[in-house]
Amino acid sequence: MATPMAVSVPGIQAERDHALDWVKWLALMAMVMDHVWFVLPAEWQDPGYGLRVAGRLAFPLFCLAIAANVARQPAGYPVGIRRYLAGLLLFAMLSQPAYTKFFDNGTLNILFTLALGLPIAAAVQHRTPALIVGAVLCVAIGYAYSSVLAYGFWGVLLPAVLVTAIRSQSSDLFQVLAIVAAVVALLANGALLAVFRDLTAVQYCQVAAIAVAPLLGLLILQIQAPPVRPVGRWMYAFYPIHLLVLSSLAIAWS
């Protein structure tokens, strides 16, 4: 049997994509900065609100990493998608106790949202019957449980929107789809209507960061980025571990 050929997508190469690694590193750093703010002593939180602004980059960039990884998968080769989904679901469940202890907000952690978004993005990319059925199921689950999912229903759809944008990088639709991705990111954060409200300067900066994040990530994917240490499967374990470490620091500081 012939080996399936990799999908040719502008900006996404079959070999190691250093630009994608830069996107992942940026998402990781933004996430950590966001979470560090929560454990700062009260008197440090106002001066440190820039951490929250930077943190708004994280979720759209993680969604972009999902989308770019899906775009790299060979057509008709679902094993990589299944492994990806299995890893997300496993660490979503393992991370939930640490997430609940850290936030205590009654929601599921971000990995559940990304796990639901992955099959939808894969269906948009490959359009096989099995993936389409899985995507419909994930859309239904995302809609039904949007109130307990981090970033809600729109967060589940964002990786698929970004896959569409990646596929169109060489077409005239790219700019339109990039803007659509920015709007969906705002909807996922509940920030679309916030721009019409009386916000502080810092809050407007947060809204701007959310909108800019998908555009920044898509731009990074198009450049010839220098090599950087790859972000591998250790990123799954990093998520619950960093939450536990920060929870311990919060206890120590209090």
Rank of each mutant, 00 (worst) to 15 (best):
A27S: 13
P119T: 06
Q45S: 12
R197Y: 02
E43G: 11
G50P: 04
A42E: 14
N105I: 10
P4C: 09
S254A: 09
M235V: 15
R233K: 14
L193Y: 02
Q45T: 00
A65E: 00
W44D: 04
P230E: 09
P10I: 09
P230V: 15
V32E: 08
T164W: 12
V180I: 14
L243E: 08
R167G: 01
V32T: 09
L158Y: 13
I166R: 10
L149V: 01
A68H: 02
R82A: 07
V161P: 07
R83Q: 06
P47D: 13
P129I: 13
A54W: 15
H242L: 06
L85R: 06
L111I: 08
N69T: 03
A211L: 14
A160K: 13
H242A: 07
L218I: 09
V53F: 06
R82C: 00
P4W: 01
F153R: 07
Y99I: 02
F196R: 06
K24G: 03
V32F: 09
D21T: 11
V148R: 03
F62H: 06
H35W: 01
V139W: 12
L186D: 05
P74F: 11
A135P: 05
F103P: 04
P41V: 05
F62A: 03
Q224N: 14
G142M: 01
A188S: 12
L162Y: 13
A211Q: 11
I132F: 12
G106M: 02
I132T: 15
A14H: 14
W154M: 07
A252V: 00
W234R: 13
I251M: 10
F59M: 12
T128N: 12
V212P: 03
Q224L: 04
V163I: 04
R233A: 15
L216P: 10
Y151N: 10
V176D: 02
F112T: 02
T128R: 15
L158M: 10
D104P: 02
L111F: 15
G87I: 10
Q222E: 00
Y145V: 01
G48E: 05
W253T: 06
V124R: 07
L149M: 05
T128I: 13
P60C: 02
A115T: 00
L51K: 08
P227A: 14
F112L: 04
Y145R: 08
R127I: 14
W253A: 10
G152F: 01
G55A: 06
W25Q: 07
N69M: 05
G155H: 08
F59P: 02
L244I: 12
L177E: 03
V133S: 15
G106R: 11
A165S: 10
V136L: 15
G217P: 15
P41T: 03
T113V: 01
V195H: 01
G134K: 10
D34S: 06
C63R: 03
D198A: 03
A86Y: 13
D104Q: 10
V53D: 02
D198P: 01
W234D: 13
F103S: 03
Y84M: 13
A86I: 08
L219A: 15
I223T: 11
M29Q: 09
N109W: 07
T128Q: 15
P240F: 06
I141M: 11
L218T: 11
R16G: 05
L246T: 02
A181H: 07
A194D: 05
T113P: 04
R229T: 12
T164F: 06
A121M: 07
W25F: 01
I132P: 03
